[in-house]
Every structure is written in structure tokens, then in C-alpha cells.
Design a protein around this nucleic acid. Structure first.
Lengths: 109, 109
DNA sequence: ATAAGGTGCAACCTCATGGTTGCGTATTTC
DNA sequence: GAAATACGCAACCATGAGGTTGCACCTTAT
């Protein structure tokens, strides 16, 4: 399970619009080069490079050099990590509410 | 469905460790006051106030004044919004991989 | 060999963020 | 009414984030 700090890092990585777009662009399952991704982005190649490194640090994408270019792919597991954390909080919330409901129904005005 | 920008805002809100902690603290389903939350946080009450406002702007929590204090509660739906976005990307990825697999199996070495 | 394509590095700028401190205001409580 | 509680506002500070530009470096194509 993703620790709280890891989760925060993942969310932070997805928290920037440009980065989220890049991540979503990798959702096609294919491997894309920096230039390729930069062409579809409204910012400089350098900016894209920084964002991809950020995504990689957060474990959201992986890269591999291929000749003169580097191809990035989405790390699918990362999505499940993030969802896992959200599920955790959600479940905690649901559980608390269930207990409250039970408490009320059992008596105690 | 959460738009891309909304999703980024949600993720950004959860992207800070302190804020994620506060949000998780509200996972017990109860309504907590600022001072209450600040007592369990490693930062100033003012910092907590700022973070709570940020969470509220992102739609992750809701607040209601009660006399001299303000009680914050988690907006459970927000979690599902975030999960929905992740599911979207995940599904896209899965779909792409399925198509690739089908493509390979249908012929084409 | 030369040119073109893909990336790395570094300096630089601006602005938002996370945090603090200090003081003022409303609400309880005694 | 006075003291304690819970909060708001504003100034301030340091750092980091997002972005750009310019140039150098390696790889592939001609």
C-alpha cells in the first residue's frame, strides 16, 4: 500500500495541468519521445522534459533510451496505487458512517 | 465526470503532505474545528486554516460555522471524482493494450 | 562530411506556495 | 464585565515550481 508520503508525491505529480495532460497522453499505452509529447503540448520541450522527470520521480512513468531518443511509458500500477489510497480514505469514511448509524439505531437518542 | 482541470485541482490539493494529512484526518466522518485539526498538526493554526481553505476551494471539504467555531467535513463525493478520473485513464490504457493484443493475435507478426 | 533531429545542461525570471508572527474581532464562559 | 476560546486579516519571508532562452552534445540520415 502506498504510504502517505508516497501518495502525496503521486498526487502532487498529477496536480499540475500540463503534467496531468502529459500523463493522460501516455494513457494510449504507447511509448512516446519527448519531442513527440512536446509537439502536442503548449509549452517548450524543456518544460516537457522537466515534467516528465517529475512524473518519473513520482513513479508514474518510466523511460528507456532508444538511440537518440528517449521513450516514456505510463506505469499502470501507479494509477492503482493512487486509487488504493483514495479507497483507503473512502473506506474509512464509510466505516465511520456505518458505525455511527449502528450506534444511533442501537439506542442513544 | 470530472474535467481535466478539475481533476488537476483535486490532485493538487491532495499533493501537499500537510493537506493530505488534514484530509485524511477528516476521514473519520466527523466534523472537526480548525483548532482541533491544528492541535494534531505540526504547523500553525494559520497554516491549517490556509490548507483547509485550499481543500474547500478544490471541493474536497465543506465547512459550516457553529457559534465561534467552524466545523469542517470531508466531501465524500470528491474522492469518487478523483477515482473516476484515474479510472478513466486506466481504462484507456487497458483498452489500448487490449487492442494491441488483438492486433497481434489476428496476424501481423 | 555535413546536416538534421533529439536531447542535456545551465542560467535566469516570475510568481505561487507553505509557513510564520502579530494583532484584531467575535463568541463563550465565569 | 472580564477572561478565555476560536477565528480572521495582513504583512512578511524563503523557497520552489513552472517556464523560457541559449548553447553544447550525441545520433542518424544524406
Amino acid at each position: 500500500m502506498a504510504t502517505s508520503e508516497t501518495a502525496a508525491a503521486i498526487f502532487a505529480a498529477l496536480g499540475d495541468p500540463t503534467r496531468l495532460s502529459l500523463f493522460a497522453a501516455l494513457g494510449d499505452g504507447a511509448a512516446h519521445s519527448i519531442t513527440e509529447l512536446a509537439d502536442d503540448a503548449p509549452v517548450t520541450r524543456q518544460a516537457v522534459t522537466k515534467h516528465l522527470k517529475a512524473l518519473e520521480r513520482a513513479g508514474l512513468v518510466a523511460s528507456a533510451r532508444n538511440g537518440r531518443e528517449i521513450r516514456f511509458v505510463m506505469r499502470r500500477e501507479a494509477i492503482d496505487d493512487a486509487k488504493g489510497f483514495l479507497n483507503h480514505i473512502g473506506a474509512q469514511w464509510d466505516g465511520a458512517l456505518d458505525r455511527l448509524k449502528a450506534h444511533v439505531e442501537t439506542g442513544e437518542a
